[in-house]
Amino acid sequence: MTSIPSEPALKPERPQFSSGPTVKFPGWSLDKLKTDSLGRSHRSAGAKARLKYAIDLSRELLGVPEDYLVGIMPGSDTGALECAMWTMLDPERPATVAAWESFGNVWIQDAVKQLRLPKLTTLSADYGEIPDLANIPQDNDVVFTWNGTTSGAMIPDTDWLASDREGVTINDATSAIFALEMDWPKLDATTYSWQKVMGSEAQHGMLILSPKAVERIESYDPAWPLPKLFRLKKGDKINCGIFEGATINTPSLLATEDYIAALEWAKSIGGRKAMFERADANAKIVKDWIEATPWLRNMVADPAKRTNTGVCMKFTGEWYESLSHEDQAAVPKKIVKLCEERGVGYDFNGYRDAPPSLRIWCGGTLEAEDIKRLLPWIEWAYETVKNG
């Protein structure tokens, strides 16, 4: 039996590698958060101004066009995305929902089982793959996930979306935005959550609407009941107050201040371009390591479709492939447990519905040095599991 190597000497200073909620920005602490709005009504002038500031700063950092609306929604990315589906998808129009991982498949189930769209086409692919998007008709409404949070597969481009397409596009961008540039002219409803790439507190989402999306919402009244949390109109017009800080329901002002602090940090380091660069550099460390590690392979075979945020990897090799399915599933769990017990890496197991895997978050709030220090520990844990 091969001897187990010694434990690595260096530990990550911040061992949080979860893919959501993700690690806070470097230097974060509670005393950095402003608290004047706490204990106040979210309808008060001061609190509403902070909500509006969060909206305005999001618009600035993301480069959202001036004629687009940006609003805060309840229910994280899920609430924002389902609001877009419930208020914009019309049974009289053809629609396509494309999925290549767990959350995209939730949107398929929403369209099939909840909205029951009669003119629906669904496209799906296994983990690590992306379905053929080029054949989606341009008059179809389309729902898609820019980056597969649980598979590590992202769309390489938006060439499959015509700039003058008739249908609306609904884009779940939660693990891509602030890490990849959005092609705003081709996007009608874009959603994300505070707790993903920015590492902020959960339960709040963002909804970004193009003029075309607003036109659809104002001209279409769904046949199905709309919960209050999804109601974006007053009468026949969009409720602009939602996009000025007058949220549909009561937000957490503490979470709002946490999101603002993250946005201000991102702005201080150079904005979204700096965030892109940090994610790219972090992901390159992990991707290069996977390529150099004989018992791992990237879950995404095509390099052009590999994300720079939640990098997912599967196991390979003679020893692993000799194991039963149950024992294979246990390998990543055992690796993560060994690392967690030593305080060197938390929450980097693959998603529960994905194939047995590891998933290391590489978004811009991560420090490259912490990722570099984690990888030898994973190698040590693998050898410990293999030879233990």
Rank of each mutant, 00 (worst) to 15 (best):
L89F: 08
V168H: 00
D183V: 00
T191P: 05
Y320R: 08
K48N: 09
A47K: 04
K234I: 14
D183H: 01
P355V: 07
Q203R: 15
G350T: 08
Q138V: 03
V70Q: 01
E66L: 00
L180Y: 14
V70Y: 09
P118D: 03
M73G: 05
R59W: 02
R50Y: 05
I335W: 02
L296K: 12
L38E: 07
E341W: 09
W146K: 14
T247M: 06
A283D: 04
L209H: 07
S322W: 05
D188K: 07
K32Q: 07
N239G: 03
K228W: 10
S102C: 08
C83W: 01
M206Y: 08
Y351N: 05
E367W: 05
S44H: 10
W319I: 02
N105W: 08
A381M: 10
P118K: 05
D302W: 01
I108P: 00
T96M: 06
W100N: 03
G39K: 04
W361Y: 14
A189W: 03
T35C: 02
G71I: 01
N105Q: 15
V23M: 11
K333C: 10
L30A: 15
H204D: 04
V142P: 00
L89D: 00
V344E: 02
K372Y: 10
L187V: 02
L120W: 08
T307L: 02
A189G: 01
A9E: 15
R272P: 00
G128R: 06
E369D: 15
L209F: 12
F243V: 03
W28V: 05
S19N: 07
G39I: 04
K237V: 14
V336L: 06
R278K: 15
G345M: 02
L61H: 05
G245P: 13
T365Q: 13
Q114D: 14
E291R: 10
P332H: 06
D172F: 07
K32L: 12
A80M: 06
P8E: 07
L263S: 03
P12H: 13
T158D: 15
T145R: 13
K273R: 15
C339S: 10
G310H: 09
P137E: 04
A292F: 10
V97Q: 02
W146V: 03
D36R: 10
Y259R: 10
D258N: 15
S76C: 02
N387M: 09
P94R: 00
D183T: 06
R116G: 07
E60H: 02
L61W: 01
K372F: 04
